[in-house]
């Protein structure tokens, strides 16, 4: 996981803690929106991904009422993730780099087919890829 964060720091010029948080938000989107079985498979292939998503994206409880809210998660969709990344201090160019690097890293670790399957299971993401 750390090598992904390092790559992002290098490509975007973000501070390491911000890059870590941003990666966490990205992964949290995948975790909350993607097909559960496929996401589990993907996260198993990328050590640390699940923890990072949990840490920075909340628990991702959907429609979980107050508890979901307290978790700070409730990721709505791709744009909600972008919006949250903006609030973290990233500009659109940095967000694009983040997306590209995360995707590339995931493909290296888990194979192109699985990453494509996960991406296709996230509602709305295809419009942005």
């Amino acid at each position: 996981m750390q090598d992904l964060i390092d790559r992002i720091v290098e490509k975007t010029g973000l501070a390491p803690d911000v890059a870590e948080k941003a990666t966490g938000i990205m992964l949290s989107l995948v975790k909350t929106q993607g097909d559960k079985a496929k996401v589990t498979q993907l996260f198993d292939a990328i050590p640390g991904a699940g923890e990072l998503a949990q840490l920075h994206g909340g628990d991702g409880a959907r429609g979980g009422g107050l508890l979901g809210m307290l978790g700070g998660g409730l990721m709505g969709g791709p744009l909600a993730a972008v919006s949250k990344l903006q609030a973290t201090g990233l500009n659109m160019d940095q967000i694009k780099v983040l997306g590209k690097e995360t995707l590339g890293y995931a493909k290296e670790k888990a194979g192109e087919d699985l990453v494509k399957d996960v991406a296709n299971s996230i509602p709305g993401i295809s419009g942005y890829l």
Partner: peptide, 12 residues
């Protein structure tokens, strides 16, 4: 539903 909430950014 009493526990309704909308998924979003969760920003505070």
């Amino acid at each position: 539903p009493a526990d309704w909430s909308m998924a979003g950014t969760g920003l505070k």
